[in-house]
Design a protein around this nucleic acid. Structure first.
Lengths: 197, 197
DNA sequence: CCCTTTCCGTAACGGCCGTTACCGTAGCAG
DNA sequence: CTGCTACGGTAACGGCCGTTACGGAAAGGG
């Protein structure tokens, strides 16, 4: 049984390389050779770890979802009340100071790819609906008296605002700086904070 | 002086074809051969009308901006008061009943391309800032008493909400139907409608 | 009616892509 | 230490890309 490898570690390494290349050079620059160079190997290893380029893309997409889910879990767990958790979850989804700025660029790249690829579109929908469910749960905890329609509209408005800020800031960070994004989120949450009292 | 052509008409034809291909097959499907086939000609004509593929892309981007500007002008001119104009301008930016649903997909495509292309990024910033200026002017007309900071935050929040809804609806129309988008916009505008009174 | 000049379809080229086949090699069993 | 086997680096292939060169066709002037 000679020369065994750690398949999982390889897949993570390559998914991270995919993520970095995507953030740096966008979708058109995402080639197997670029990923291999970034990961410090050759295309041979890539094609042994993943059967096709699409499988690599899907795995990288899953990795992006996993990261955001972990961060959202942490933000929620660190909060004491429902409103604080809601503010923390939405706030970490917006541009962070700690250099997670690439994540929005990668997200936009996957989104654009999803418009022409059914598998990626499915992952996108699943991830977004998962995020919607989380926000929905927190909003409902803040405002128990609201009807289902109010809950749905507010939830999707908050998510759309956050993702819109992300997207616009990714393309024009000067016009949408971090403090403005946080201020916009605070203003949008003020309605809920009133209702929560 | 034999056999003259209408250069402008050709460029419009090809830009429209570019737009359609982009909406249908996304960025990866946007090739000169696909554009030529959609326009009913060959790549020879394309390369005579535009020196490079990038020039074609930029012209198509300008066309997209021009269309949205014309529609926004019309929406604004058809309104009687400032609040109505604001609601109309933002409402037409959201998903329309008249099949302009592709426009969001094209917009996302250009946005993703702009993340790796400086020229496209410049066009995107110019277009978005122009839209911001329009909304800013209308919000200021509605709420003359507001400070500059309030104006800026509200303006960018409204634009982020609208673009966020557009983007999310483009990838998951089932979760973000047209009536929900309009309801979300109405709720966001209610703050301004109170201030306008 | 023909000639000239512009136009544009045709076809080829070089390059980069994803993918594949092959073989040198590294590491564990005996 | 030696041989076997899975691993992964190398290089080539077919295909599609953007781009270019060329030649036939079409249209207005003489």
């Amino acid at each position: 049984m000679p020369k065994q490898r750690d398949v999982e570690a390889q897949r993570d390494l390559l998914s991270n390389a995919t993520w970095q290349v995507l953030a740096e050079h966008g979708l058109p620059g995402l080639t197997l050779r670029a990923v291999a160079e970034r990961a410090g190997c050759t295309t041979g290893l890539v094609m042994h770890a993943f059967p096709t380029k699409k499988a690599l893309l899907l795995h990288a997409r899953d990795l992006l979802y996993e990261r955001t889910a972990v961060r959202a879990d942490a933000a929620e767990a660190a909060s004491t009340d429902a409103f604080g958790a809601l503010a923390a979850v939405l706030g970490q989804a917006i541009d962070l100071p700690h250099g997670h700025h690439d994540e929005s660029r990668v997200w936009v790249g996957f989104l654009a790819a999803a418009l022409a690829d059914d598998d990626l579109a499915g992952r996108h929908r699943a991830a977004n609906r998962s995020f919607l469910a989380r926000v929905h749960r927190l909003v409902a905890a803040c405002c128990p008296k609201w009807t289902g329609e109010d809950l749905e509209r507010t939830t999707k408005s908050l998510v759309a605002l956050v993702e819109g800020l992300n997207v616009l800031a990714a393309a024009d960070p000067q016009t949408y700086p971090a403090d403005l994004q946080q201020a916009a989120l605070r203003a949008a949450l003020s309605v809920i904070s009133e209702c929560a009292r």
